[in-house]
Design a protein around this nucleic acid. Sequence first.
DNA 1: AACACCGCCTGAGCGC
DNA 2: TGCGCTCAGGCGGTGT
Length: 254
Amino acid sequence: EVETVRRSLESLVGLVIRPRVHRADVVRGRLREGRLLDLHRLGKQLAIVTEAQAFCVQLGMSGQMLVGPVSEAEDHVHVRWQVEDGRTLRFRDPRRFGGISVHATMEDLRRARWSSLGPDALGVRAPVLEARLRGRRALKAALLDQQVLAGVGNIYADEALFRARLDPHREASALEPEEVRRLASSIRAVLRASIGAGGSTLRDHRSADGRPGAYQSRHRVYGRGGHPCPSCGRALEVVRIAQRTTTFCPACQR
DNA sequence: AACACCGCCTGAGCGC
DNA sequence: TGCGCTCAGGCGGTGT
């Protein structure tokens, strides 16, 4: 979802943006006017670099970065940026699980916020994943831990584990090399397919132009507890692991 | 140091 | 129609 948002903001590169903060507790630090130079992403965090500073946007559960036309009764907009071409960029976040942190430079942002994150999940390869899972017990909890691997949330953890045919209860550090390879390629494949579909829109995710994603219709296990497994037909099971609802097929995932 | 658990927050869905 | 309840989950904090 964050990658689809990042891509949909690319038309802003090169333009001056001028911020106006409507809800101060959503922003840490002071946003300044400046020309937008670059957009970066690590895991679920989006970095926007201007001539003046670099700021990190976390969308949390319900955050949006919008530049498209303002829909009627658009509430919960906490920051607005006037774009020099007349458009308005908005940070909207009804639930306020998200936020923005401001840093002097991209290097500062990386040091302060990104140095503790694991490698980005979109490009993770088996040898790196194996090293990151070392010393970890609960497989699903490890995948959700952004310090292990950055960018996998509850939806994609369940989808990747199903595709890799791995039981979320498995001990992470005891996976066979072949299983780690399957998991790494499943994570990449699921994330790539989702980005291709514009991400999963359960309720809030939108790209900057306001369009929802379509990948939710391709979820094979997430949100489908009790339904037949798309592979073997047995009912998908719902359990709670790492305080997260977890859906898996007890027959296919071992 | 891995992991459990909590609280933050709004809106949707549900039973009555 | 409306009310109260539960649930969704990313993440940072605290406790074990």
